[in-house]
Amino acid sequence: MTKTKTLLALALIGVCATASARGDIEMLARTCNGCHGVGGVSVGLSMPSIGGLPKEYLRNIMKQWKYDERSAITMNRIVKGLSDDEIDALAAHFAKQRWVPAPQQASAALLAKGKSAISENCEDCHGFTGSDPDVDAPRINGQWAKYMELELAKYRDPRFKMPHRKMKKAAQDMKPAEVPAAAGYFGAQDK
């Protein structure tokens, strides 16, 4: 065996050792793919892409669901079966994936309406195109608009427990027609 090959092999054994220690989290993360897509890249309009979202954000929302600090439709049930360590590992796992925007078509009128709505309510925390979020906020450029509309509906409905005060206030300040416009605007962004 040549020296290069031996070195490569040794490097790979290193990878292998780390990988087998991580094996279980990979197995667990794969169960998320059924609804959120491989690597957390969703192809279902109502289901969010989660690959490449900030670790802090992912960990926070999963723990909030687990401890009933935040309403959800399905996720609050699922995460109750996970340990805090598993939640941390899942958050780290998906945060490491590449964010793959799915830019969706939107009419010029909707984009214009969306742009004005987001500059008032969203830009501060998520950035002008949704790709430059604060530490506790997700990226939303090219996130599914349908998903964002559903999420905004939760923030706007007092019967849903949504713990992020700033987000709640921003969502509730929006006029009804601004909701699909803002969602459509961010959904259309590729970068």
Partner: peptide
């Protein structure tokens, strides 16, 4: 809440088919 599950059902199926 019930209405949202109709939307989630569609997203779930699409991802499950893809997965």
């Amino acid at each position: 809440y019930r209405k949202m599950e109709v939307a989630y059902a569609d997203g779930w199926l699409r991802n499950l088919l893809a997965d």
